[in-house]
Design a protein around this nucleic acid. Structure first.
Lengths: 252, 252
DNA sequence: CGAAAACATTGACGGTGGTCAATGCTTGAC
DNA sequence: GTCAAGCATTGACCACCGTCAATGTTTTCG
């Protein structure tokens, strides 16, 4: 069942145009720098459930996610799992100049990543201020995402959290290049299973299901199937989310 | 009432040894670099409730917290407040190479900060790879704190969250130089009021109070007063917290 | 010192959501 | 096609916590 199409399909059987992918992931980077990276990049496919980085292990690669979804998750002593970060395409993972990873990174869907050996990546980073600055900005972005997530987790009611989640997802999709067609309905694809989403929102699959169908009952969204969500009333959804999430509106 | 001693007292009426503070905050930084920064540093006292950075405004300074506690907080449209980050001494605030702030930063207690004008700081950063690398590590640390916090917010029961909070606080205190005296009881000072703590844990002052006294009832902590907490049973507290928080134990 | 203000705590009550269990639905294998 | 596995959904029950209100406690100020 790992082949279930949660990730929207891979572009081709291999689609191995590394240079093109690099340019896409690291937009506005001078070509000269890109070529240095291209030499050491490696394309890797990971089946759902596959572990990319293990907690406690010293990750030996830095990577950019091309397709699918990765989750940064932590196993609690009592068996529960909590997902503390979701990676969608163009997001980066891996640690630099730093100790062991504090959490696992696992593939929540079949995924494809563009990976760099850690040491080589660090060498290039040190020798090239542009890339290092770029990387710094990446980390600052991640920090923003994390803070955004903390804010989301502060919403007490699950419906709030779920609405926030959908809006964050929407904004990230829009950021990722695709633009809204004025007339067409706004669609969001939840890239992960209910269990994972529940772990992510700090709740249970049951509650996620209920919340989702409550939003549908209020006419704010429509469920094509369990994963394809149509946003029927964006301002309404924003209102329910509690936070402002103006970014989602501006980005439209 | 702004003079209530939540922050452990300031070292002196002015205590303005900027060089010494810098060396403390930026440990393991070559002296040459420190002198460049010393010239532009400015010591600033902020009363409780004072706003350090305003959401949406372009922060014009970068600072390190010397004493007290700062909160990064967001005002929700419905009037609720949510604190998404707590800054304790040696933590850094401010944004570089970047847009407007996404949240307010306010003083939760009377506080003292070591501030740098943003542009001058950026100039020094660009011209000095050591400091830039150092700054990058700072940001990575912040990212860790944020993730840790997300994990904490995942704990469903308030007692769990509170236990995690105490452990995080304990570890940060230990990191800050002070070491445990083997015989003496482990003391943690909650640096902020109940309301702020509640906003921070995503709950209410009432629930915080209840949770705290429940921990006391279980013999895990003892309350000297509302702010001075004695950790009576560290392993027990770790167990309740759900997460592992091994750092707190190792650091002892 | 006495009064008022700011906080913390405690109590009662109702709603949200976690838990356990049963039922549907979809996919993939034979 | 049928069957089984993997998920999603729905329902019932009850613990936990948010809310409102009252009481204690500490600090501040006249």
């Amino acid at each position: 069942m790992a082949n279930r199409d949660l990730h929207g399909g891979l572009p081709g059987p291999q689609g191995g145009d590394i240079g093109g992918l690099l340019a896409e992931v690291l937009a506005d980077m001078p070509d000269a720098q890109l070529h240095g990276l291209e030499g050491i990049a490696r394309l890797r496919d990971i089946p759902r459930g596959g572990v990319v980085v293990t907690e406690g292990g010293r990750p030996d690669e830095i990577g950019y996610l091309i397709h699918g979804a990765l989750g940064m998750q932590k196993q609690l002593p009592d068996g529960r799992v909590h997902i503390i970060g979701l990676l969608v395409p163009t997001d980066m993972y891996g640690r630099l100049f730093d100790g062991p990873a504090a959490y696992d990174i696992v593939a929540l869907t079949d995924a494809r990543v563009l990976a760099f050996p850690r040491d080589a990546f660090e060498r290039i980073l040190v020798s090239s201020p542009e890339i290092e600055r770029r990387f710094l900005v990446n980390v600052l972005d991640e920090l923003d995402s994390a803070r955004e997530w903390i804010l989301l987790m502060g919403g007490h009611k699950i419906v709030e959290r779920l609405a926030s989640f959908l809006l964050i997802l929407l904004r990230r999709m829009l950021r990722g290049g695709r633009h809204r067609v004025p007339g067409a309905p706004i669609m969001v694809r939840i890239p992960i299973r209910r269990v994972d989403l529940a772990h992510y929102l700090g709740t249970t699959p049951e509650s996620v299901s209920r919340a989702l169908h409550e939003l549908e009952g209020q006419g704010l969204v429509r469920l094509r199937d369990a994963y394809e969500i149509e946003i029927a009333d964006l301002p309404g959804l924003v209102r329910v989310s509690g936070a402002d999430h103006l970014g989602a509106e501006r980005a439209g």
